[in-house]
Simulated scan of single mutants.
Amino acid sequence: MKKIAVVLSGSGYLDGSEITEAVSLLIALNQAGAEVSCFAPEVELSVVNHIDGKATGEKRSVLVEAARIARGHVQSLSKLHAKDFDAVAFPGGFGAAKNLCNWAEKGAKCDVNPEAERVIMDFFNASKPIGAICIAPALIARVLGKQKVTVTIGEDAGTIAEILKTGAQHEECPVDDYITDRETKVVSTPAYMYGDAKPNQVFAGIFGLAHELVEWA
């Protein structure tokens, strides 16, 4: 049984992990026969009201919020090491662009959470697969851009332009599909980068990504 790590960034698409994407990933990885463990950074997030989309001014723990999705079974990102797993995957949601890095603020010039960067580099250097969903491929591009990694976030022109500034390559992709970079072993799918996507379409792309990750692992 392959062991796959999933890196969460909170709970809720406006300030954490996109829940449909995260749950789809967990289900698809289990369907593919993998044993899944969840991790999240020990940092604070700025809470957003998911009804009106406005910041509340409240701060919460990313790790504690991620535990909502992982049913309490989540560990600090500092405990994730490539030697213990066969692959790693990052769901999307604004948390990937706010809590794992500040892409939402700075785009291609963003700063990356040190533990998130360490994990990505650990898996890359160990030649172990990395999965990225929705906006999370931008995080991968920021870290692995100099390696000429190819990712997808769908077809959003503004985000694609920023990704290209990192040195990474971009390939357009429909919501229910995924793309693979066999040189860097990165798999990505756009998911809710298509804002009007249906959950079944999002799941289809993530299902493909998950099975590709497990096959490579």
Score class of each variant (00 low, 15 high):
Met1Arg: 12
Met1Trp: 04
Met1Ile: 09
Met1Val: 10
Lys2His: 11
Ala5Phe: 02
Val6Pro: 00
Val6Trp: 01
Val6Asp: 02
Val7His: 01
Leu8Glu: 01
Leu8Met: 07
Ser9Ile: 03
Ser9Pro: 00
Ser9Asn: 02
Gly10Trp: 10
Ser11Glu: 14
Gly12Ser: 13
Ile19Leu: 08
Thr20Gln: 14
Glu21Pro: 03
Glu21Asp: 05
Ala22Gln: 05
Ala22Gly: 11
Val23Leu: 13
Ser24Gln: 03
Leu26Pro: 06
Ile27Asp: 09
Ile27Ala: 08
Gln31Phe: 11
Glu35Pro: 00
Ser37Leu: 03
Cys38Ala: 05
Cys38Pro: 01
Val43Arg: 07
Val43Ala: 10
Val43Leu: 09
Leu45Gln: 02
Leu45Pro: 00
Leu45Tyr: 05
Val47Ala: 04
Val47Thr: 03
Val48Pro: 01
Val48Phe: 01
Asn49Met: 04
His50Asn: 02
Ile51Gly: 06
Asp52Ile: 03
Asp52Leu: 02
Gly53Arg: 04
Ala55Lys: 12
Glu58Tyr: 02
Val62His: 07
Val62Pro: 04
Val64Lys: 15
Glu65Thr: 06
Ala66Ser: 10
Ala66Tyr: 04
Ile69Glu: 05
Ala70Tyr: 07
Ala70Arg: 05
Arg71Leu: 06
His73Arg: 15
Ser76His: 06
Leu77Phe: 11
Ser78Lys: 14
Lys79Tyr: 13
Lys83Gln: 08
Phe85Thr: 03
Ala89Gln: 00
Pro91Lys: 08
Gly93Gln: 08
Gly93Asp: 09
Gly95Asn: 09
Ala96Pro: 06
Ala96Thr: 12
Asn102Asp: 15
Glu105Arg: 14
Ala108Trp: 13
Asp111Pro: 00
Val112Gln: 05
Val112Arg: 10
Asn113Met: 12
Pro114Ala: 15
Pro114Gly: 13
Ala116Trp: 04
Glu117His: 13
Glu117Ser: 13
Arg118Asp: 06
Arg118Ser: 00
Ile120Arg: 09
Ile120Met: 11
Asp122Gln: 11
Pro129Gln: 07
Ile130Val: 12
Ala132Val: 10
Ile135Lys: 05
Pro137Ser: 06
Arg142Ala: 12
Arg142Lys: 12
Gly145Asn: 02
Gly145His: 08
Lys146Gln: 14
Lys148Met: 10
Thr150Leu: 15
Thr150Trp: 12
Thr150Asp: 09
Val151Glu: 06
Ile153Arg: 08
Gly154Tyr: 09
Glu155Asp: 15
Asp156Pro: 00
Gly158Thr: 11
Gly158Ile: 14
Glu162Trp: 07
Glu162Tyr: 06
Leu164His: 03
Gly167Arg: 11
Gln169Leu: 14
Gln169Ala: 11
Glu172His: 14
Asp176His: 14
Asp176Ser: 12
Tyr178Leu: 15
Tyr178Ile: 12
Thr180Asp: 13
Thr180Pro: 03
Thr180Ser: 15
Arg182His: 03
Glu183Gln: 11
Lys185Gln: 15
Val186Met: 07
Val186His: 01
Val187Ala: 13
Thr189Asp: 04
Pro190His: 08
Ala191His: 05
Ala191Tyr: 02
Met193Ile: 07
Gly195Lys: 12
Ala197Arg: 00
Ala197Leu: 00
Lys198Met: 09
Pro199Gln: 13
Asn200Tyr: 15
Asn200Met: 14
Gln201Thr: 08
Gln201Ala: 11
Val202Cys: 01
Ala204Arg: 09
Ala204Ser: 11
Gly205Ile: 07
Ile206Lys: 05
Phe207Ser: 15
Leu209Ser: 01
Ala210Tyr: 00
Leu213Phe: 02
Glu215Gly: 07
